[in-house]
Design a binder for these strands. Structure first.
Lengths: 193, 193
DNA sequence: CATTTCCATTGACAAAAGTCAATGCTATTT
DNA sequence: AAATAGCATTGACTTTTGTCAATGGAAATG
């Protein structure tokens, strides 16, 4: 249990067995069925969710009911509405499962205790968030500076596994496009072949 | 000297006078004239730059020479090509001054020493990057889910000071638009008045 | 203070992306 | 196995955004 979580942790900051045991006290396993929510807009986000197995997405829904996907999370990824989690304000995002999934949950209280008691946890979190920040900055750069075809190629190159497991209209949603537009971009790309 | 920097630091993690003195050893002041670079694409980013006074922008340049602005940084903000800084890979962004500016530079070596020797520094960095991550996530959400007019309103509401100090074509660049398009969005918005 | 340079706006037109509707295919569900 | 729901694609058309060119004004420069 928690194999993927501790693998991720140890890749960034290596823990002794004792430290692992200590951390385990603060973790809660949770299984989620496909389409099940772990967070709904308006509720306070109670957990940081680490994906042991499966796939989730976070997204916002506009007035017309159109979903815009903010993030995908496969095994080894972390997902949350961090703003809501940290401030206890109502969440602006929804998070649900794309596949049957297994999560490791860290509650706010656990998070705070771990930050306080285990400096390596703070380092782990810092490194995680730094990586997430850099990835988001690249995503922004791509969105504001590249033509669609390049953006799509970048996405496929960066996340081939997501491209395989997730329906295309969700990738369109992640890119801020309609499914039709993405379909046409793909068609244009294939003409070279 | 370093007033704004330590104000920012103390707002997040409060330091004793002794700790402030300790940190000061690792800081370097730097003045930058308008249009002067602190980082050019292809060079390795040597510093995290804290803005004491003035304004900077980071941006990428595409094949046609068009700039896409990744970030603005006014007083109290931090700017860097974090990926390049952390990995020592060549930077993909340029950073230059929009106005005559005063910076506080933290070198890689200083950053690492501070992380090691002063836990409060790690906390400060963690909180900074967390805030930056949340801001970027909101920006992505805005880009992929909102109509232009809403995006522009959000920008103005969030950064009225940037809107005042920076030419509009740079805001267009930050939004991934041409200056003409932003001008037309603004025109449409004024029709209500 | 004269001259550039920068900048925002506008118009006419072209290109890109969205909308709506229909089709056929595949995976799920019953 | 049949029925349903989800999905990708396509066509016709509309709307949005980009491109190019021109203008006038403001700000920076020598």
């Amino acid at each position: 249990m928690y194999e993927v979580f501790f693998r991720s942790f140890n890749e960034r900051v290596s823990l002794t067995k004792e430290e692992e045991e200590f951390v385990k006290q603060f973790l809660t396993p949770k299984k989620l069925r496909k389409k099940q929510f772990i967070l709904q807009e308006g509720d306070v986000c109670k957990y940081i969710c680490f994906v042991e197995k499966g796939a989730l997405k976070s997204y916002s829904v506009d007035a017309n009911g159109t979903e815009s996907i903010i993030q995908f999370a496969l095994e080894g990824w972390t997902i949350s509405d961090l703003y809501s989690f940290l401030t206890a304000e109502p969440a602006t995002y929804n998070i649900d499962a794309l596949e049957d999934s297994e999560l490791v949950l860290i509650s706010k209280a656990s998070h705070e205790t771990l930050l306080e008691k285990l400096p390596k946890y703070e380092t782990y979190i810092r490194l995680q968030i730094t990586g997430a920040y850099i990835a988001l900055q690249k995503r922004i750069t791509s969105v504001i500076s590249l033509p669609l075809e390049e953006r799509y190629k970048n996405f496929i190159a960066l996340y081939p596994n997501i491209a395989q497991r997730v329906p295309q209209h969700m990738i369109a949603s992640y890119m801020g496009l309609t499914p039709e537009t993405l379909s046409r971009v793909r068609k244009k790309m294939n003409l070279g072949k």
